[in-house]
Amino acid sequence: MSGERTQSALLGALGVALMLGAWEVIGQNRLVGMTWPPFSSVMAFLFDPSRQALFSRALTATLGSAGLGYLIGGLAGLAFAMLGQILPVLRPGTDRATAVIHAIPSIALAPIFIVLLSREAAPTALAALNAFFVFYVAGASGFASSSQTQRDLMAALGASGTKRFFHVDLPAAFPGIVSGMKLAVPAALIGAIIGEWFGAPRGLGILIVNAMQNFQIPLLWSVVVLAATTSLVLFSAMTLLERIVHERYR
């Protein structure tokens, strides 16, 4: 059993190594042309000290708007889910509104946010919107996962809807919410980057789109790698948190 686990971990590491190797070989031999730089030169570009200031300024801007959006969207999503749980009559309405919001391509909402808020606020708004959906779904299904017996017990004890919510539904929802916290990371980053494409002053999205338009291939790849790695690191941290919480609450 544990031998099998080591084996699959080794295979997985080999798979990732093969992917990076293929990236390098294709880049070295220009198999796809000039637009595919080898892994090594992207890394060299990324870690070049002269560009640290540029990258860190862009990363800070994007993480700032994505983080703020994550918070706002997360709190709003959980609040909306709570509303549907404490007042079940409202549940179909919250479900439907969230599904429609989710189905709208976030790029289509960017022009509205720019008018209603500002160009600077569009990344935060789109990040919030994407996080909102993930948190709503995680919260709503999490709150509903408290067992019927537990709820019956609370009813028999004469607990109000709010009491039941805080004693039974909320703890039961905790593992689901933590999983949502993890899934909302890339969602919020996508929202922030798309929002930046509508003319934010700085950020990873701006670097990406400028590099694309000006044929700065190594810069383009470096920033994309930076965005992907940032997401991966945060996602992995959340996965760790998720594992701890799941062990506690299940």
């Binding site: 997985g12 093969l18 890339p186 996508i190």
Partner: peptide, 19 residues
Amino acid sequence: NGLLTPIGLIFSSIPVVAM
């Protein structure tokens, strides 16, 4: 399966739209 699973996981945890 062993080779591809982590790659799939990586790509589902990053903002692919940025690519």
